[in-house]
Amino acid sequence: MKTKVAVLGGGSWGTALSVLLSKNDVDTGIWIRSKEQFEIMSNNRENPKYLPDIKLPKQLEISTDIDEILKERSIVVLAVPTNSVRELLVQLEGKIQKSQVIVNVAKGIENKSKKRISEIAREYFPDNDFVALSGPSHAEEVALDIPTTVVSASTNKKVAEYIQDVFSCSTFRVYTNPDVIGVELGGALKNIIALGAGISDGLGYGDNTKAALMTRGIYEMSKLGVALGADPDTFSGLSGIGDLIVTCTSMHSRNRRAGILIGKGLSMEKAVEEIGMVVEGIKTTKSTYELAGDIGVEMPITKELYNVLYNGADVRESVGKLMGRSMKHEMEIVAKNKKTSW
Rank of each mutant, 00 (worst) to 15 (best):
L20K: 15
D25G: 04
A153W: 09
V180R: 10
A313V: 00
N311G: 02
I54D: 03
V159S: 12
E273D: 11
K190G: 13
V151D: 01
L56G: 12
E184H: 08
R86W: 04
L144Q: 15
L144Y: 00
Y205K: 13
R325D: 00
A212H: 12
M214Y: 10
K114F: 01
T64D: 12
Q164M: 05
K107W: 10
K55I: 13
N208T: 06
K4D: 01
A106L: 01
E269Q: 13
M1P: 11
L305F: 07
G281D: 01
I109A: 13
E119A: 15
R45L: 10
T155R: 15
T215M: 11
M41T: 05
R33Y: 15
C169W: 05
T171R: 07
L224A: 13
V159D: 11
V80A: 03
N24K: 05
V279M: 08
S250C: 11
F130S: 02
K95N: 06
I163W: 07
N337F: 09
D27A: 09
K223D: 13
N104Q: 06
S74L: 02
A335S: 14
R256P: 07
D27F: 08
T3I: 10
K303Y: 11
S239G: 10
G229K: 06
G265I: 09
C248P: 10
E269V: 09
I30D: 05
G296R: 05
K210E: 01
L189S: 10
M41D: 07
G281I: 05
A160I: 02
V80R: 09
E332Q: 14
N208P: 04
A79K: 12
K2G: 01
K264L: 08
L266W: 00
Y306I: 10
A188N: 07
E36D: 14
P126M: 01
I295C: 06
L89N: 09
G182C: 03
K58N: 14
I260S: 14
L224V: 08
S12L: 03
I282Y: 01
D53M: 02
A153N: 12
A160P: 05
M268A: 14
T247I: 04
N177V: 11
N47H: 13
